[in-house]
Design a protein around this nucleic acid. Structure first.
Length: 490
RNA sequence: GGCGCAUUCGUCUAGUGGCCUAGGACACCGCCCUCUCAAGGCGGAGAUCAGGGGUUCGAAUCCCCUAUGCGCUACCA
């Protein structure tokens, strides 16, 4: 079973933006294939025409690309086992269904949706486990074939009724399912499309997938797939059911719980390397101490044997930490570009474009240690791109220092000292020297009075370093802001 | 309801019978550094390993029971 060359796949259905849980499965499948020098393929499971969402396929490709996950075969690049859209592989599924019928392992079912609903309702009312009652399983093959000519039908798999089906899972070990409890599930729908169960078995076989790596929500269906493999006489892949990713509410992450689409994280300013690092450790670990791991190392060292069986809660704090880490670790020029991009994206339309690159370059290093998510960039640099300080509450000027009269003195003294710097000598060191020189006349430490100046200059008591900010801002704008602040205090 | 899975600090995890009076990381708290805020450095608190029975000289690690949580239970994946 494991002697085959490693081939794994990610097989999403195009029903929307892939969420982080799905992508984590893709990441693990991909990393496993890469670590084993195998191949990774992408297959679109578009067998449900009702749930198909326009643009979803592109969103899937984009999600993977963003994280740096590449595939050897897939809908866009093709490959020897194509096509990679299930909707284009219909004959394969029909053929398999035919074989199953002929072998007596599947049968046509003519029960109407109404009857099925009624059946479920009565089972629920009687507190019986729901499931198809196998009414059509007894229909003679010839009769079924005849009725099929003008009656709608589905094809159901005839489950083995006795004994048990055993799943050998590399993450969970052996899981035993009683056959008597299994349902005669549908393999081919009345519209001729296969259900997931049939399609996944047919395609994984045809595409020579060696390891079926998927979310734990599938483990209950595993006996269906295993029996399908047995009935068709095909070799099972190695099974690996990954632990679920839970939301803060400890429920399975889903579109409904919001905040789960992978691309939303990109749009909020998370870095792909942070996301990969974060996702990699949701259910897996390298050893007893590694927490920072690049994608290259993941590709090299990932292994299913170190995947844990228990579900993991998605902890945004940890993602934030990693994002900040990668921001600080990245190449300086890339950081400048990101700052430019996010400032441009986030600054109000009233700020003239293009943005002054010199300002961006000067501010970028100051932002590095203060940004955890790129979306914060614009708010931190806005004051550098406007003439006046951003709007602020006058009370802020006094808040930290505690006394309006003292704040007034600070502003007056600062004004005198800064005004004394000639235009040509305006620089960060000159500003710093001037402001530090205030300690003596004011009779207080720099740290004590500087919050007043922060507010006057940037509209808030915290932000990127003041001396640099004033240096970038220039003489005229700085003095204007200090005077404006002074005027506010009467 | 049935079936299945899971259960180590708040969170992600290390741990496969003695190295564990349970290690790392995030978050939290404190100190240092410091022009604010951060970042960084140092330190702290935080898990009777869900509970109860066994097995064993010895259990977080093996077995059983219970509890709790989650997943599945469609002509959706």
């Amino acid at each position: 079973m494991t002697d085959r060359p490693v081939r794994t796949r990610y097989a999403p259905s195009p029903t929307g933006n892939p969420h982080v849980g799905n992508i984590r499965s893709a990441l693990f499948s991909w990393a496993f294939a890469r670590a084993r020098d195998g191949q990774f393929l992408l297959r679109i499971e578009d067998t449900d025409r009702n749930r198909y969402v326009e643009g979803a396929v592109e969103a899937i490709l984009e999600s993977l690309r963003w994280l740096g996950i590449d595939w050897d075969e897939g809908p866009d690049v093709g490959g020897p086992k194509g096509p990679y859209f299930q909707s284009q592989r219909l004959p394969l599924y029909r053929e398999a269904a035919e074989r199953l019928i002929e072998a007596g392992r599947a049968y046509r079912c003519f029960c109407t949706p109404e009857r099925l609903d009624a059946l479920r309702a009565s089972q629920a009312a009687a507190k019986q486990p729901p499931g198809y009652d196998r009414r059509c399983r007894g229909i003679l093959p010839e009769e079924a074939a005849a009725r099929a000519k003008d009656e709608p039908f589905v094809v159901r798999f005839a489950m083995v009724l006795e004994g048990s089906t055993v799943l050998e899972d590399v993450i969970r070990g052996q899981v035993v399912f009683e056959n008597a409890l299994q349902d005669d599930f549908v393999v081919l729908k009345s519209d001729g499309y296969p259900t997931y169960h049939l399609a996944v078995v047919v395609d994984d076989t045809a595409m020579e997938v060696s390891h079926c790596i998927r979310g734990d929500e599938w483990i209950s269906s595993a006996p269906k797939h295993i029996q399908l493999y047995e009935a068709l006489g095909w070799q099972q892949p190695t099974w690996a059911h990954l632990p679920l990713i839970l939301g803060p509410d400890h429920k399975k992450l889903s579109k409904r719980s919001g905040d789960t689409a992978l691309l939303d994280y990109r749009d909020r300013g998370y870095l792909p390397e942070a996301m990969v690092n974060f996702l990699a450790f949701l259910g897996w670990s390298l050893d007893d101490h590694t927490t920072i791991l690049g994608v290259e190392d993941l590709k090299r060292h990932f292994d299913l044997s170190r995947v844990v069986p228990n579900p993991a809660v998605f902890d945004i704090e940890r993602l934030n930490f990693l994002n900040g880490h990668y921001i600080r670790a990245m190449d300086g020029e890339r950081w400048v570009q990101l700052v430019a991009e996010w400032a441009d994206r986030g600054l109000p339309a009233s700020v003239p474009r293009p943005l002054d690159e010199r300002v961006i370059r000067a501010a970028a290093p100051l932002l590095r240690e203060r940004v955890t998510v790129l979306g914060e960039v614009a708010g931190l640099v806005e004051f550098l791109f406007t003439y006046d300080a951003p709007a602020y509450d006058t009370a802020l000027l006094v808040e930290r220092i505690g006394d309006a009269a003292v704040a007034v003195r600070v502003l007056d003294e600062a004004l005198v000292r800064l005004d004394a710097i000639p235009e040509g000598e305006w620089s960060t060191p000159a500003v710093e020297a001037a402001l530090r020189g205030l300690e003596e006349p004011l009779g207080m430490k720099l740290r004590k009075f500087i919050p007043v100046l922060y507010v006057a200059v940037m509209g808030r008591p915290t932000g990127i370093p003041l001396f640099d900010s004033i240096g970038i801002l220039g003489r005229e704008r700085t003095l204007a802001r200090l005077r404006a602040a002074r005027a506010r205090l009467g």
